[in-house]
Design a protein around this nucleic acid. Structure first.
Length: 461
RNA sequence: GCAGCCGUAGUGUAGUCCGGUUAACACGUCUCCCUGUCACGGAGAAGAUCGUGGGUUCAAAUCCCAUCGGCUGCGCCA
């Protein structure tokens, strides 16, 4: 007999079936034993009657989280025994045979709860158990659905997903890079990407016109509730586009996404307001305004655009130069007279309930303007060298282009009303960037270090 | 780098301010009983280096010092 999933049981009343899964809980009444069996698709109640002697004997031995296989008849429950609180509360399986596929130790914490009460350290160490929780299973499922929606939506609109390298080059400014030593070039290092920014712009030079990627990004900075060293963003870029096109695409996509996947949610304002950066700073004292009317309403989504950013930060940096407000490829408005203190840019941020969930811009596509920006930022000759491939590429017919990158962990955690993006990631790290399950980061053995031409000079401990 | 909060059976907490018998409670675990439970029920049992090290004291989970770990926030995050 072929094993079926628990969700299929409701159409199998009267049939003999084989199912398999984890014991959620066993309620032993002596002669009568109930087992709630759980698989990836759901839960259902098994009844083991004393007249199936062998099955009864095995059933009385099983414990929570054991993996078992069951053969039995799917039955409608007697009216009085229907549990209206459970999805499959009107059926149960009368067990004819139980097979133990694997025993389990008692889990280090209760898997039946939402898990918020359990110490984070223990949860992360036993993440594979933590993930058995209904809440986290749901979060991962929703995450999959969100990403699938985005992939379908953009694919239907002629976007192409392109993978960009993880092994790339460290760049000046920006976040701290994670670096990877090169074995073939001892003493040299790759950097893991903070975002595919340069690659996606180069894909525009390559003539792709519409690119997107569900991209892993890595930044070696301290974490927060809405920040992990390793995270996922929807990265997209378009050629022959204006800021309005980028805003409209995102707004239509996310609106449709919410309406389809979260029919109970409502928008504070639709279409989303497009707020002037200056006004936002005055009114909200932050560039991430929370426009919701009722912040306690779990179903309210306050999406808002922030536009018309200054091109540079107000204060000059320690080198006496201007730091870009967004990044150095952001196109200024009114390029003829570039007055650093006043210049505005084609930057756009998307905020949701007070969190920044996307940021992007129309990019510079004129090499002379790009050079000028580098000068204003105060790049040294060496720093300019880092970007020579960009300036060089821009000599070969760059289309006007722009795009956006949206943090999916943040988006999904807000949609799921989760207080921390860890709750929507399968294997997140601790606050100080460790993986407690794998015990990473870890030492390298001497042979590896030697091959890489590396020597570890001093250790903290 | 800085600040705040936290660390007590497997899990969650109480006890700490104001030191004093056997460290308490709930859940879980184990044994026995139980034919309609679904937060099953009943009877019983086991389970704690009180994060670690040092100090004060007749006496430390409790006071002092140091240290380790966790969470949250600030810095940082083009």
């Amino acid at each position: 007999m072929k094993r079926i999933q628990i969700k299929e049981l409701k159409n199998k009343i009267g049939e003999i079936v084989k199912i398999a899964g984890w014991v959620d809980v066993r309620r032993d009444h002596g002669k009568l034993i109930f087992i709630d069996l759980r698989d990836a698709s759901g839960k259902a109640q098994m009844v083991v009657l004393p007249n199936y002697e062998e099955a009864h004997k095995v059933a009385s031995a099983v414990r929570s989280e054991w993996v078992i296989e069951i053969e039995g008849e799917v039955k409608k429950r007697p009216d009085k025994m229907i549990n209206p609180d459970l999805e499959l509360g009107n059926i149960e399986i009368e067990v004819k045979a139980v097979k133990i596929l694997n025993e389990s130790k008692t889990p280090p914490f209760d898997l039946a709860t939402d898990g918020y009460e359990v110490n984070e350290e223990v949860r992360l160490k036993y993440r594979y158990l933590d993930l058995r929780r209904e809440r986290l299973q749901k979060n991962l499922r929703v995450r999959h659905n969100v990403i699938k929606f985005i992939r379908d939506y953009l694919s239907e609109r002629d976007f192409m997903e392109v993978e960009t390298p993880l092994l790339t080059k460290s760049t000046p400014e920006g976040a701290r890079d994670f670096v990877v030593p090169s074995r073939l070039h001892p003493g040299k290092f790759y950097a893991l990407p903070q975002s595919p920014q340069q690659y996606k712009q180069l894909l525009m030079v390559a003539g792709l016109e519409k690119y997107f990627q569900i991209a892993k990004c890595l930044r070696d900075e301290d974490t927060r509730g809405d920040r992990q060293a390793e995270f996922t963003q929807l990265d997209l870029e378009m050629s022959f586009t204006e800021q309005e096109d980028v805003l409209n695409l995102m707004e239509e996509m996310y609106t449709e996404l919410v309406e389809k996947l979260y029919p109970d949610k409502k928008f504070t304002q639709k279409p989303w307001p497009r707020l002037d950066y200056g006004d936002v700073m005055k009114e909200y004292k932050t560039d991430r305004p929370d426009i919701r009317k009722d912040k306690s309403d779990k179903n309210e989504l306050g999406f808002a655009w922030v536009v018309n950013f200054p091109l540079f930060e107000k204060e000059k940096n320690e080198k006496g130069h201007y730091a870009p407000s967004h990044h150095m490829f952001t196109s200024p408005k009114g390029v003829e007279e570039l007055e650093p203190n006043l210049a505005k840019s084609f930057q756009h941020d998307l905020v949701l309930n007070g969190f920044e969930i996307a940021g992007g811009s129309i990019r510079i596509h004129n090499p002379h303007i790009q050079t000028k920006i580098f000068d204003l930022i105060g790049f040294s000759k060496e720093e300019k060298e880092y970007f020579k491939h960009m300036l060089e590429a821009f000599e070969y017919g760059v289309p006007p282009h722009g795009g956006i990158a949206s943090g999916l962990d943040r988006l999904i955690s807000i949609l799921q009303n989760e207080p921390n993006i860890r709750e929507v990631m399968a294997f997140p790290k601790t606050g100080d960037g460790r993986d407690l399950m794998m015990d990473a980061p870890a030492d390298l053995d001497k042979k590896q270090l030697k091959e890489l031409g590396l020597e570890v000079k001093k250790r903290k401990n």
